[in-house]
Write a protein that binds this DNA or RNA. Sequence first.
DNA 1: TTCAACAAGACCAATTTGGTCCTATTCACC
DNA 2: GGTGAATAGGACCAAATTGGTCTTGTTGAA
Lengths: 170, 170
Amino acid sequence: MQITRASEYAMLGLLALSRRPAGSIEMVDALAHEEGVPTSFLGKIFQSLSRAGIVKSARGSGGGFSLVRTPDEITVLEVIEAVEGPIALQRCLETDSDCTHREGCALCGLFSEAQDRVKEIFGRTSVAELTRRHTPFVEYEERTARSRPKHPKTAAATKPKRSRTLKLSS
Amino acid sequence: MQITRASEYAMLGLLALSRRPAGSIEMVDALAHEEGVPTSFLGKIFQSLSRAGIVKSARGSGGGFSLVRTPDEITVLEVIEAVEGPIALQRCLETDSDCTHREGCALCGLFSEAQDRVKEIFGRTSVAELTRRHTPFVEYEERTARSRPKHPKTAAATKPKRSRTLKLSS
DNA sequence: TTCAACAAGACCAATTTGGTCCTATTCACC
DNA sequence: GGTGAATAGGACCAAATTGGTCTTGTTGAA
């Protein structure tokens, strides 16, 4: 009963993307480094977001991903369901449920209640709201690195790798 | 992000057991047939419940499982955690979390909120409460079988197989 | 026209889930 | 008391899901 890493990474990628000026195209590699997630995996995840109409992709050199809507119009629920399919806390609650217990089953009712609460919470939280209270992974790393012996893997991840849009906005 | 069948079956088994007179020993096979779940799998699941101190096992001929506490003293949360380990809606929230995002991560906070709600709902619901509004699988089957062409598998599952304790109480 | 940058998606390994089946234990009956 | 049937215990296994990597196909820029 876990929200997968795919959803987590999707959210982190969107948080990174929504820190950019509206409409800017960004490549997956930059987003991935910024939040410390594996690049190609994030690429695959963003394909789902693209199919769901949350982001727009541009191929070829100079390509990348951009937001279709503003961050406050994208809910966490939407992102999770784009990546994992419709939320179902239990198999009874799946859309094509083959649950044999149907009416008389007390469990379905209970699970349904819990699921509704979860969906309600994720449904009323927008990407914009999370961006406000989120510190990017690289920033966190840079701050703590000073008071800590350098770790080779960490040092590599922190290596400066400015993005196209960041250059433009400076 | 699903509650597994193991937890579902555990609950169904406990519902069946809690319909019996307090303290009666019942074998897994009877409970399994009553709720239409695979017998040996339920056996394995009940081992976890036994280790968690929710049921007590008796080996050998005449053995089986019995409740340690009354049904209203057993919460759904407890049962789920006995079977699946501590609930963690996301890996950030695991007890030995290696989540790299720590303080600055807005996601952890959101996931934590959702998880608290789920745990609250499951924590305040007892097995006794569910028993009150639950129709056993066999009963449901028998009722609907009359108005339906007989299905060989269903017919086999409905085959009378009275339990020891039921005989005693009649 | 060619090349490099990029998304797309086929592919793969590890883990988790959902079981089955054999083994060890215990009681009841002779 | 010995023997055998009944029962929980637990090792084992197959399938599905997760968490990725790597190759391929597209596209724009030079």
